Computed example of a mutant assay.
Amino acid sequence: MQANSSYGVSSVPNSSALSAAKEFAGYFAVSLAGLAVDAVVLLILVSGCGLPVVHSSVVAFMAGLAVVYLCSVKFVFASRRVEQPIVEFFTFAMLGIAGLLLTMLIMHVGTQQLHFDYRWTKIGAAGASFVCNFALRKLVLFSKT
């Protein structure tokens, strides 16, 4: 594509857009790792221990949260707004509450009202939670301003 100053079109990619795309892809990768931990813990608690699905979802979500936080700050986000790691983790976790509540709602509706298998319901809950958590965390914790 040719540069065209009258329309502001350039062949040079916007570096902030590339950075955001790279962070999104990285966050997706670490979220997959967190989801794997989440899914294994959920499977163990429900199928192995016979615990209720919704309660097990909370424990599994928290295990996945720890993995996502550690990998996010180490490998994904270039900018960090909070200097104290304990405050950053607490904020990261509190923002994750939105994803947790969304997960709980989807798990409840999917398994209790629609009678879907909890494993399939978890897939939808994970996708919704991912988008919600990335947007909130990027905006509040990992953006430059």
Rank of each mutant, 00 (worst) to 15 (best):
L18M: 12
R81L: 03
G64D: 15
P52V: 03
E83F: 05
V40G: 00
A135W: 14
Q113D: 01
S31P: 14
G127L: 06
I86L: 05
G26P: 01
M62G: 11
A17Q: 08
E88L: 05
S19K: 11
A125D: 15
V37D: 13
K138D: 11
Q112R: 12
G34Y: 12
A98E: 09
R80A: 04
V68P: 05
H115K: 05
F75Y: 13
G110H: 01
N133M: 01
V58K: 08
M104P: 10
C71K: 12
E23H: 07
L45M: 14
T103A: 06
S31Y: 10
L45T: 08
F24N: 06
E88H: 03
L65D: 03
V109Q: 04
A78N: 08
I123A: 08
A66L: 11
E88W: 06
S79M: 12
P52N: 01
F134N: 02
V54C: 13
L35W: 07
K144V: 10
F89T: 01
A29M: 03
A33K: 11
M62S: 13
G26D: 05
A125P: 15
S129Y: 03
T103H: 07
F142N: 03
L43N: 04
D117I: 00
R81P: 05
S143L: 01
A135C: 09
G96W: 07
A39W: 06
M94Y: 15
A25V: 10
S31T: 13
L105C: 09
G48I: 07
S19F: 10
L105V: 09
K138C: 09
S16P: 14
Y27W: 10
V59W: 00
P52E: 11
T103Y: 07
Q84L: 03
V67C: 06
Q113W: 06
I123D: 05
V58R: 06
C132Q: 11
A21Y: 09
R137K: 08
I123G: 00
F61V: 09
F116C: 02
V59C: 05
S129W: 01
A63M: 13
H55D: 15
F130W: 02
S129F: 04
Y69M: 04
Q84G: 04
C132W: 15
F134T: 02
A78S: 11
V87Y: 12
H115F: 13
I86M: 01
A98D: 10
N133E: 00
G127H: 05
S16V: 14
